[in-house]
């Protein structure tokens, strides 16, 4: 396909734009697999401890703010919807819709981080931050502290991924605004979307594991 060489987005070491797109897509999926293994280590540890200290972990879980957690879940699922719409708009070449949905996604992502920040501030005030200042009125307070170690490690790591996601959205907004994305070159939007959905799914696991684990017992 010699005519594809005139394509401005084609990098020199690829033969065709198709090959470049396939490579990028496979690369993103492989990256997401590394992310699953990364979070997987923490989930494995958590599973081991939650079965050993189920009482204390349930108690720790009751200290979490279910309302804010639930609101954040809705916010994040909403952002996944707007992200999917952004990808669709890019595919169809609708620049204005693309920019609108990207902006919405960014906004929802920031809202999530803001709510998370409020939660963190509450925990800090309630002296639930692991360390020497940690105070919980409980016979198994050290195990409750272990629960909060997981809470901060897991949600913190997730929040860090959200920050990266918001950065990606800003980058997409900039290039979308300059009109770089076309129906034949939209995969940066699509792949960023994959990342966004992944971070969303991590939360879909974190929410029940951390917030709901104790609610029925």
């Amino acid at each position: 396909m010699p005519e594809t060489h005139s394509e401005p987005h084609l990098q020199h070491h690829f033969v065709a734009l198709e090959q470049q797109q396939e490579a990028s897509t496979l690369g993103m999926w492989a990256f997401l697999i590394t992310e699953i293994m990364f979070f997987g280590g923490l989930f494995t540890l958590f599973t081991a401890y939650v079965s050993a200290y189920s009482e204390a972990f349930a108690e720790g879980s009751r200290h979490l703010d279910l309302v804010l957690g639930a609101v954040n879940t809705v916010v994040l699922i909403g952002s996944s919807f707007t992200m999917a719409m952004a990808v669709r708009s890019a595919q169809l070449g609708k620049r204005k819709a693309l920019l609108g949905f990207l902006a919405l996604t960014t906004l929802l992502g920031c809202a999530f981080l803001g709510i998370k920040g409020i939660e963190y501030a509450h925990k800090f005030k309630q002296r639930l931050l692991p360390g020497p200042a940690f105070r919980v009125d409980s016979p198994a307070s050290q195990h409750v502290q272990l629960f909060f170690s997981f809470y901060f490690a897991m949600t913190g790591l997730h929040a860090l991924h959200m920050v990266v996601g918001v950065g990606l959205m800003t980058w997409l907004l900039f290039h979308g605004w300059r009109g770089r994305f076309t129906p034949t070159y939209f995969w940066p939007v699509e792949l960023s979307g994959l990342y966004w959905h992944f971070v969303d799914i991590v939360w879909i696991f974190l929410f029940p594991v951390l917030y709901l684990v104790a609610r029925h017992s």
């Binding site: 020497p132 195990h143 272990l146």
Partner: peptide, 11 residues
């Protein structure tokens, strides 16, 4: 930070 996932003192 004292986030002790392997700390025996915390179980």
């Amino acid at each position: 930070l004292g986030i002790g996932l392997f700390d025996p003192a915390l179980g």
